[in-house]
Write a protein that binds this DNA or RNA. Sequence first.
DNA 1: CATGAATGAGAGTTCATTCAT
DNA 2: TATGAATGAACTCTCATTCAT
Lengths: 225, 225, 225, 225
Amino acid sequence: MPKSALAQQPHWKAFASRRRDPTTKREAVLKTAAELFLEKSYGRTSLDDIAERLNITKPALYHYFHKKEEILLECYRWGTGLIEESLTEIAGSAGTGLEKVAAFVYSYANVMTVNFGRCVMRLDEGDLSTQALEEVRTYKRKIDRRLRSFIQEGIRDGSIAPCDPKIAAFSIAGAVNWICMWYEPAGPLTAEEIASQFARTLTQGLARRKPDSLRRAAPAGPSAD
Amino acid sequence: MPKSALAQQPHWKAFASRRRDPTTKREAVLKTAAELFLEKSYGRTSLDDIAERLNITKPALYHYFHKKEEILLECYRWGTGLIEESLTEIAGSAGTGLEKVAAFVYSYANVMTVNFGRCVMRLDEGDLSTQALEEVRTYKRKIDRRLRSFIQEGIRDGSIAPCDPKIAAFSIAGAVNWICMWYEPAGPLTAEEIASQFARTLTQGLARRKPDSLRRAAPAGPSAD
Amino acid sequence: MPKSALAQQPHWKAFASRRRDPTTKREAVLKTAAELFLEKSYGRTSLDDIAERLNITKPALYHYFHKKEEILLECYRWGTGLIEESLTEIAGSAGTGLEKVAAFVYSYANVMTVNFGRCVMRLDEGDLSTQALEEVRTYKRKIDRRLRSFIQEGIRDGSIAPCDPKIAAFSIAGAVNWICMWYEPAGPLTAEEIASQFARTLTQGLARRKPDSLRRAAPAGPSAD
Amino acid sequence: MPKSALAQQPHWKAFASRRRDPTTKREAVLKTAAELFLEKSYGRTSLDDIAERLNITKPALYHYFHKKEEILLECYRWGTGLIEESLTEIAGSAGTGLEKVAAFVYSYANVMTVNFGRCVMRLDEGDLSTQALEEVRTYKRKIDRRLRSFIQEGIRDGSIAPCDPKIAAFSIAGAVNWICMWYEPAGPLTAEEIASQFARTLTQGLARRKPDSLRRAAPAGPSAD
DNA sequence: CATGAATGAGAGTTCATTCAT
DNA sequence: TATGAATGAACTCTCATTCAT
């Protein structure tokens, strides 16, 4: 599988030559940092670790970031950006509330298998400064509110059985968030499998009556995989 | 609520007098440590922090623990002990697979609102030594296997609709585990509310046909609370 | 060999009963401390180590000694006392200078196989306070002067070939002192073997002419061993 | 004496400028450490002590060594290297066993007056890790075996009177090793004086018959000094 | 007396960050 | 621009010594 091989490719190649897009280098730092943060946590990852994996020296990192924490914050931002993308797409699409929830789970679960996405939910918020923390928290609240609104929409349009939207959202979000804790790229389950299965399983509990109708709730895409 | 007020009471009273039950003191250290670990993470909690909150000095901690990591491990052990208790009780009880899953969720969710329980799923395993890590991992695997077996039992006895037990277990466990990330004692939801609601919500997706029958799946106890 | 068995016997028996000669207990502390100091050095021996081997608690040690250093100093004093004893005996005895040197080596070498004697030369003087250091240094100088005077006596009475007494004394004293570095009670060489062999070997180089006459220089006692 | 004055010159000059041969700096650390270890012992020498004497800060030392113990081990290695050098030279040279022993004593005694050489025999092996200890012990055994083989060679070629090579080696090695305990650069005896005198004195006891032949056993070099 | 408890002082080590080249 | 060098602050852990029972 060439794509996965490409993904495994170390990011230090971006620093191979002197003349290279600085933006590319910044991203390479970010990707490497995200990897390490997920492997060893932010606190146990030293700037030396990051530099070493990139085949550069520690002070060189300061050309791209002012503080260690800034690297962390950028990881969060990249991750939340990924979520944002799919969320707005879904919100704008047509369909019942239940279908939107299914789409949400599907695409959110996918993000939880990508390094930057995992960072958002797996890394310790306590490592962020007060201000950065507020930024991230605001973002997370937004996601939660979005999911809750989909559920309420479903209740209104009759696709979802009456329930407490808050509890339902916590439950669904929790299940999906937790993926970032156990997912391994090298593991037996592919991201698509996980995403589509979660989408089906988690909407089953919400659906009104006829469970048969749920099959359609899962997006068409992944079923092909 | 006097009970909760009592629980909030700082643990340093155990160290008020020099001659006092050492076991009580050890527990006071553990409780305080668990609090701090949840507030600030293990890595950012210094022994001075723990000592300060207990109104003692740092080296005094070494009367009760040999290393900082030992404190962490004991928190894990206490927490897993709590889970173990309820698990064996449920496993031995009568009932359909679905009922057992509901009972599992109910009691596990409750544990996730208790500090030591939260520690098990919220703290970073990377702070444990290889050996301690193995111990904790073994324990977690056990929990997961238990849940999966309840689900399989339910599929066999017809109380649960056919599904992939692995995915279902991941999904349920994830939802419940995540509680430890957002639950706050001072928050609007009580532990019992959360536990009973999660038990109901999460089993709804599993149940075969008539969702009405699920009401009985949630334990009677908490409804009285 | 009952005597050696007795010597191996741990010293904590002195603390077995409450009512026991305090002097005996003090000595037990000293013997145990000497053992440990030789095994692990003064610096790496904690009071807890000593207390543990004596089956008592650390503060109990403070009933017999005011400071850790006092224990060390007492070890030195006991050791130098042993040397002093034999030295005065030899000085008072009749015989040529060479015979006195031989007797000195023999008895000094013996002391170097006894724990307290080894302490004198093996332990680090830097651990002593200025005052205690002066005391010990004074003592060591005394020993050296004594040996040098024996040599000079020998040169005068013709039993020793003319040489620089200072260098000769350094050389002989060094050879004997070094015993405390490699001697092991459980080793292949007994204390008497070492002592008598060293007495013979080291005087050989001093003796005037006929080396055969040296046989008599070594004390008769040990030759039987 | 300008050479000695130069040697006394503090090593911190190596750290005067930031860009300077790192090897020189490493050596400066080593030399300063050796000085301090001999003055106050390894255990009582803190990294701050070393850093202070070099006019740098403690963490700067970690640019050159990973652990405090590594500094110690490098001192040992430097010292054993010095001994090794002279040993191989002697072993390869022509001459009777007695002459080789004399040469050994002469050059070994010289090493015992050099800081790194003194470290080898004066510092406490107990401060080394198990592995490093093995390395050093192996080395010391090698020295001892070398000396013993010279003695046996001498017995075979008739230059040395029959004796127990083990005891003789212990005695000679002890006398020379002990030099590192009392030698002081500022003292009345120069290194060469000590070395040549010891070579003569210590071989006197070994030589067969005619003591006159011994004069030639001492290397010619030092007699000129 | 004897002891469990507690502490102050200090050590080695790590690391984000800055400086100087 | 990029880097080797250096540092200050912080943390874990140890231990001789003293207190209180």
